[in-house]
Design a protein around this nucleic acid. Sequence first.
DNA 1: AACTACCTCAACCGCGATAGC
DNA 2: AGCTATCGCGGTTGAGGTAGT
Length: 240
Amino acid sequence: MEQVSMEMKKGPWSPDEDSKLIHFISLFGQGRWNSLAHVAGLKRSGKSCRLRWLNYLQPNLRRGKITPQEQLLILLLHFRFGNRWSKIAENLPGRSDNDVKNYWRTKVQKHAKELHCEINSQQFRHFLLYQWMPSLLAQQIPTSSSELIVTENYSPNNINTCPNINVISSTDSFVTEDDSNIWNNLSSFEDGINISHDFSTPSDMTLYNYSSHDEDDQYYCHNYWASAEMLSLDEMDLWL
DNA sequence: AACTACCTCAACCGCGATAGC
DNA sequence: AGCTATCGCGGTTGAGGTAGT
């Protein structure tokens, strides 16, 4: 049983508590959080110690705003995993499940509210797939043009299921180290989805192709062709 | 400068799963 | 097998910061 809550300190952690926790984790490692809190002389629950460590103190945590690449990945992975924040966070090095959850709540849910639609509705799903995600993608593409056009060329009726998809990330001219990491992380998808890089595409035109997956086990395929002047969107016309 | 609204994110809570006895 | 302790996850809250008026 957790220790009686009235004995426990709550609220923000002090620098002294942080350094105690860090010190004792360096001595004994993570886990056995209640014992750790006790031996460290912290008047905190084991739960509180664990949370403080995982979400704030552990090394290699990334600070600052969620990048467009990370946002895109969160949206993609949410199609795949739903509200399984820790699962999504596994694919975002340096981000905790709390970070992902906070992003979803403060940005995505807020946007759904502004659009007056349910977060899980087909309408909002289409907004994510055909407006938000292309715009995030566009932010990753170096462009000399100040004007970036996003066109929509799809029919909801053409959304097909697809059990086995190759996902081509981009040409080498656009692949940054971060991009590579993100798309490689996607290769951890199961169910036959894999990622590959296509370096044969002309350097002025990039094919972005990804799949998503909803709660009804439907796969959706999407292609983006992007150049410096234009980002066009087309629904992949395949059904296997 | 003061007030308000909004945003961010750290931290808490409840609950289910798991481990250990 | 059953009980208890602990862990981990997802949902939620609220303090503090910031932008707008």
